[in-house]
Structures are given as structure tokens and as C-alpha cells.
Simulated assay, not measured.
Amino acid sequence: MCLTMFITQSELIAQLTTESPVILNRDQPLYLVERNFRHALAQPISASWSNVGIRTVLERIEKTQQISLILDRRIDPSTTLKIDLQNQSVEAGLDEIASALHARAIVVGSNVYLGPDQAMGTFKTLLAQKQQELLALSDNQPDMKTRATQLSRNKSFYYQDLDTPVQLLNQIADSYQITISNPERIPHDLWSHGALMAVNANEALLLVLNQLNLTFLWEKQGTAIRLLPVPDHVTVQKTYSSRGRSLNETIEHLKELFPAAMITREGRMLLVDASADLQEKVEAELNPSKRPVRKMGTPQIDVLPIQRRKFTLRAQKVPVLAVMQKLEQSGIEFEYQPQQLNQAGVDLTQRIDISVQNADANEFFDVLFGPLNLSYQIEGIKVSLTPDN
């Protein structure tokens, strides 16, 4: 909840107490993460609330389902809802709740983040930008490769009632050994308790800063950030190959479908400058047979075991880690020890060229992990990675 010039701190505490009791030393919640979190989102839920505040509704779901839910501070937590969920998945139910708030729910790490629709689109684009920044730094500065791997590790953070965003950001910064160059830009605010579960550095920082209409710039080889206001127009660049049409025909076709995107030619590839939401639509248009990233509220689809899948991918100079992250979105899990890989000189941000067509799992992962001298073992939907001896 925001502390503004219209509300004194004592009045704010009174409001928080009315909605839910203020407890300054809550026990650390036992929320589910990773595979267990995704499984929980698919479980059925039946519940009804009438004229109940959104904070109370979400806290009830958090408690019963053991999942972390983050309500953006720009949504009034006292907003009352009339919700009737009957035997639908938790994920679909949260999507319905978000819709009732004229908001959107997205999965970030092992959390469901609910916020204003436009702000969530901006958040997704900023997250893609930050990932590209780290990859660019690791390409241009060899010393950044290990640092980029460190910042990609998932961690969890907890905060209490009446904690401030400064306290939470300092907790994140200390954990990843980051200096905030201009902390004076962080506005004073008092938040209700919550958690950021299984998030990397980019996700953790943006989950806090985006709610304050701030973003950041990586500095000093990934050991510092400078806070910046969120620009009015946020885009990210991605390249794609053309299929079924000439490059020029594809460009014209995409420009007709997506006039808000900047689409140009870069060698034999398409360069698209657009929001993350538009990038997903462009990718779906260019690769209609490719399984789309599942959105909140869509029907639950059983995850196909890896050995029963076929893989098609053509990309140039793509980081192996970026491919892994994309595969994770389709339900594939990767298990490895970052320290073990670092000691063996394995760099997951290494860029490779990859071209496979309707390949089975072993053929695909041979091509993906062969250049890194990584061994892999497939079991169900999990891929375990170890350095070659």
C-alpha cells in the first residue's frame, strides 16, 4: 500500500489492520517452487467470495495452495470482489480474479504477479531487455560470463508487514552482491508482507522496481545498477528467420499484421523491435506449429515427456542459456550445479549456431550441449547436466 501525502503513516497502519492484522515477525511461509509450484497451478479449486477485499482473497489462496501471489501496489488491496470459482485450475481462477480487477496475471519465477494490464506488458518487455543486457555484457567482457551465471541463479526473498521497498531491494542487492548507485530514487512506501520465490536477479529487482515505475541499468560488470524511470515506450529487439516466403514478403506480411512493430531486414534475418507481447505474436505467426508459451487462464496441457518430443530450431549465435530458458517455458526442467559447471569451465551463456529439423531428444541435446562439453541425462521432463570427464 502506498504512503502518499493524503495518508499519514498512522492512518495507513490503521487501514492495514482493518484489512488484515499487522504482524511484524511472521513465520517464513512454506511456498512451493519450481516443479511443485507449476503442479499447484494446475490443481482444481472451488471457492466463492462476495464483497471481500482482494488482499483477503489472495491471502486465502496463498494459504490453501501454498503459492506466492504478488499484488502490484498500483491495485487498491481493499477493492472488493464477487468471485465464484467452481472446479477450475488455480491458474484459471487467478486469471479470472485478475480480469475482475481489470488487470493481468503472469508467472514470474515461482510466483503469480497480478498488476495493471499495461504495466504487466511493460514489465515483460523490461525483463527481456535486462536479460539481453547481461548477455551483451558477457559477450563483450569475458570476465562477465561467470557474473552473468551468478545473476541467473534463482533465490527467494521474504518481507514483513510495513517493510519498505528500500529494505527489500537492499536484501536482493546484498544477496547478489550488487550496489545501487542512486538509492535516493526509491520512494518511501510501506508494504504488506510477501515473498519473491525462486527468482533470478533481473526478476527480483524488476518485481519491486516496476511497481514504483522504475527500471535499472546494469553497470560495473554486473556489480551495480543505476535506477531510471520507466520510459514511455519500451521495446526489445529479436531476430527471426523467414519460413515459407521470401524475406521481403515476410517483412511486408508482418508489417500488415503488426503495424506497431518496427520490422527490418538484418542480413538474412528479420529484426523485430517491439514489446514482449508483440514479440510473442510475431513468433507465433512465423512458427505456427511451435507450441506457444502457455498464458494464465488457458487450459492446462499435460507436459509431454522429453523422449517423446521432436525438436526443430534454427538460430545463429544464440546463448545456450537462452535456449534452456525457452525450453523451461514448455515444461522441461534442467538440473545442474552452477559451481560444478564453473569449476569445469562450462559457460552457459556461450553462443552457438544450431539447426535441427524434427530431431529426437538425443539428437537435439547433442547439438545443444556438445559445444560446451556437457553430459546430459533425460528422465521424464527433467534434464540433468554434468561436465564431461
Rank of each mutant, 00 (worst) to 15 (best):
L327K: 01
V356K: 06
D27K: 07
K326E: 13
Q300H: 12
E219L: 03
E256P: 01
T149R: 07
L227D: 06
N140I: 00
Q15M: 10
S242E: 10
D84L: 09
I13V: 13
R308H: 05
A47I: 12
N342Y: 08
K130Q: 15
Q86G: 10
N358R: 02
V90F: 01
Q329F: 09
L126R: 03
F6Y: 15
I97S: 04
R185Y: 15
M269G: 03
P259Y: 11
L254Y: 02
Q377M: 11
R268N: 15
D95H: 12
A136G: 01
L271N: 11
N248D: 15
L327W: 14
Q340P: 01
V272P: 13
L3A: 09
V108Y: 07
Q339M: 10
T122Y: 02
D302G: 00
E379I: 08
S355T: 05
F216C: 04
T235I: 00
P288S: 02
V108F: 12
T146Y: 09
I225E: 06
K155G: 04
Y336A: 13
Q15F: 15
H39I: 05
F6G: 08
V367T: 12
Y376C: 10
A201Q: 11
V112I: 14
N111E: 06
G345H: 00
F123G: 07
R153C: 06
P183R: 04
Q377R: 13
K382V: 14
A92N: 13
Y376L: 11
L321N: 02
Q131A: 15
A361E: 02
D277L: 11
E283A: 05
T64W: 07
P338M: 11
P165G: 09
M120Q: 13
H102M: 01
Y113F: 04
S68Q: 13
I13T: 10
Q307Y: 01
T215R: 00
D302S: 04
I263V: 12
L270V: 07
R294W: 09
S152V: 02
N373P: 03
A100H: 06
L69K: 14
Q237R: 10
A195D: 13
L81V: 02
E285R: 06
Q177K: 06
T4A: 12
D347G: 03
F258K: 07
F258G: 07
L372M: 01
Q65F: 03
A105P: 06
H188D: 12
I306N: 02
N182W: 13
R26F: 03
Q86L: 15
Y113K: 00
S275T: 14
A359G: 01
E283R: 03
L32S: 09
P288N: 04
N87Q: 15
I7Q: 09
N287H: 12
L169M: 14
Q237A: 12
I97M: 04
L135K: 08
L162N: 13
I301H: 05
S50R: 07
N140R: 05
A119H: 00
